[in-house]
Computed example of a mutant assay.
Amino acid sequence: MLHRRNDPHRTPRDCFDPPALGYRSKWQASVMRTGFAKRCITLGWKIAYYSKKAGLTQEFLAERCGKSVNFIGQVESPGTIRGVSLETLFKIAQVLKLQPSKLLEDD
């Protein structure tokens, strides 16, 4: 629940409650606020595209990157906004035999 800025009864949690806003985590909500959601989705599409092009499964990619299959599925899914750390991005690019910039560049 969001409260007015001058409400004397508000708590820090009241000011920003991700589940009440429909987000799973504070990180996901921050991605939405900063406008990077579209970039995260595009990154996921590119990972899925290059994985399929290389004939790799989500299971193989997850194993080689040290991540769970669920995590890779969330990253690749356009319905879920899931960003990745730089370390994970580098690992994924290495498995896909791509430069990390290839996954980040605008087409």
Score class of each variant (00 low, 15 high):
Lys102Met: 15
Glu59Ala: 13
Ser77Tyr: 00
Gln94Trp: 12
Thr42Lys: 10
Gly44Pro: 03
Glu63Phe: 04
Ser25Gly: 05
Arg64Leu: 02
Lys102Val: 15
Lys26Trp: 08
Trp45Asn: 13
Ala93Ser: 11
Pro19Asn: 06
Trp45Asp: 10
Arg33His: 12
Val31Lys: 04
Thr42Gln: 13
Leu86Met: 12
Gly44Gln: 02
Thr80Val: 14
Val84Gln: 02
Thr57Glu: 00
Lys67Gly: 03
Phe36Glu: 13
Met32Lys: 13
Glu87Cys: 03
Ala54Trp: 01
Ala20Leu: 10
Leu89Val: 03
Arg33Met: 14
Ala62Ile: 00
Lys26Gln: 13
Gly35Cys: 06
Lys67Trp: 02
Arg82Thr: 08
Phe90Ala: 10
Thr80Gly: 01
Lys102Ala: 15
His3Asn: 09
Arg13Trp: 08
Leu96Arg: 05
Phe36Thr: 02
Ala48Glu: 11
Gly83Thr: 09
Asn6Asp: 15
Lys52Tyr: 13
Trp45Ala: 10
His3Glu: 06
Glu87Lys: 13
Leu98Ala: 10
Ile41Cys: 00
Ser101Val: 15
Asp14Glu: 07
Cys40His: 09
Phe71Met: 05
Tyr50Asn: 10
Leu56Val: 03
Lys52Asn: 15
Ile81Cys: 10
Ser30His: 09
Phe16Ala: 09
Asn70Trp: 09
Lys102Phe: 14
Gln58Pro: 01
Leu98Gly: 03
Pro100Val: 05
Val31Gly: 02
Thr88Met: 07
His3Ala: 10
Leu96Gln: 05
Arg82Gly: 02
Glu76His: 08
Lys91Phe: 07
Thr80Arg: 09
Ile47Val: 15
Ser77Thr: 07
Asp7Ile: 03
Arg82Asp: 04
Glu76Cys: 10
Glu59Gly: 00
Phe16Ser: 06
Val95Leu: 08
Pro78Phe: 02
Gln94Arg: 15
Asp17Trp: 04
Lys102Asp: 15
Asp17Ala: 07
Gly83Cys: 06
Ile41Gly: 02
Asp7Lys: 04
Ala20Pro: 00
Leu61Asn: 01
Ala29Met: 10
Trp45Ser: 12
Gly35Val: 04
Gln99Met: 13
Pro100Trp: 01
Arg4Gln: 12
Val84Thr: 05
Leu104Tyr: 06
Lys38Val: 13
Ser101Cys: 11
Lys97Tyr: 04
Gly79Ala: 11
Thr42Asp: 12
Gly55Ala: 08
Gly35Leu: 00
Thr57Leu: 01
Leu43Arg: 02
Arg4Thr: 09
Arg39Cys: 01
Gly44Ala: 06
Lys97Ser: 14
Phe60Ala: 10
Glu76Trp: 03
Gly44Ile: 00
Ser25Ile: 09
Cys15Gly: 07
Gly73Trp: 03
Val75Asn: 00
Thr88Ile: 02
Pro78Tyr: 05
Gly22Gln: 06
Asn70Arg: 14
Ser101Lys: 12
Leu21His: 10
Ile72Asp: 02
Ser77Glu: 04
Pro8Gly: 00
Thr57Phe: 05
Phe60Lys: 12
Gly73Pro: 05
Leu86Thr: 10
